[in-house]
Amino acid sequence: MLRLDNLGQNAAPSFDAPLEMLGACHDKVRHFCSLLDKLPGYLAAQGVTPALQSSVAGILRYFDVAGPAHHADEEDELFPLLRQRLPDTDTPLARLAADHVMFGQRWQVLRRQLLALQDGTAAQVDAEAIHAFTTHYRSHAQLEEDWLFPLVAVTLSEDELRQAGQRMAARRQQPG
């Protein structure tokens, strides 16, 4: 069964530690990707159930709100400073930014399918589209953890990271 009830049991990092916050977002990305991966099998075995619809609502919330905010955090706070200080990072940063655009496009396709599941007008999803989305998202998160976050940690000052964290928090306080 798909379950979302174990999220949030551990204290989450705060925006005072923006790299830890971004890493925690990746943990949630992996969690919601796992839920997405389970959807086709669950649907085949159980069909559309209230539990599935509840899980789908959580997946929708995450990728509609938190995912785009996470991408904006990286693109608005980290990428410009790295490009300024380390011009040779432009190509990998451009790749990460292009991934963010692609995730947004692929998400819109999946989103329509999930909304149809949630409202009961569909009983299946495109398993290949889910697999492509989740596999690429996991790989992207791993690249950021292995390359981007360590580079940021040694390139940006504590003050720059603190200010970035403040802007990240402020971004979430702005109305939709």
Rank of each mutant, 00 (worst) to 15 (best):
L161Q: 06
A57S: 14
A94N: 12
G8L: 01
E145Y: 07
L114E: 13
L143H: 09
W147C: 15
M102D: 12
G120H: 13
H26Y: 01
M1H: 12
T89R: 13
L78W: 06
Q142R: 14
P150V: 01
R167Q: 00
P175S: 03
W147H: 14
K38E: 11
A72T: 08
E20F: 13
L96P: 07
H100L: 04
A17G: 05
L2Q: 13
A116C: 06
Q113R: 07
H131W: 13
G23M: 15
H140S: 04
L93K: 09
A122L: 05
S157R: 02
F149Y: 15
A98I: 05
A69N: 12
D37G: 08
L78H: 07
T49R: 04
D64F: 03
L2A: 13
L82W: 12
A12Q: 09
E160N: 01
T155E: 05
D5F: 13
R172V: 03
L43W: 09
Q84M: 11
L114F: 09
R61C: 13
Q166H: 09
M102P: 03
N10W: 14
A123N: 07
A123H: 11
D64N: 06
G120P: 11
R112T: 05
R95H: 06
Q108H: 09
A69R: 14
R111Q: 07
M21H: 11
E74W: 06
A69I: 12
F32I: 10
W107A: 01
A44Q: 08
N6I: 15
G8Y: 14
Q142K: 05
T135F: 01
A97R: 00
V48W: 00
L117I: 00
L117Q: 08
A122E: 00
F79V: 11
Y137T: 14
L39I: 05
I59Y: 12
E160M: 04
T91K: 09
F103L: 01
P92V: 10
S139W: 11
L114I: 06
H131M: 06
P150W: 00
P87T: 03
A69M: 12
A164W: 02
D64Y: 03
E144I: 07
Q163W: 04
A45G: 03
L161P: 01
T49F: 03
L115G: 02
T49V: 06
Y62S: 14
E144C: 10
L110N: 03
F15Y: 12
A122N: 11
A141I: 02
F63M: 13
L35F: 10
V109G: 05
R61H: 14
G41L: 08
R112A: 11
K38Y: 04
L39N: 12
L151T: 08
A57W: 10
A57T: 15
D90P: 02
F79L: 08
T134K: 05
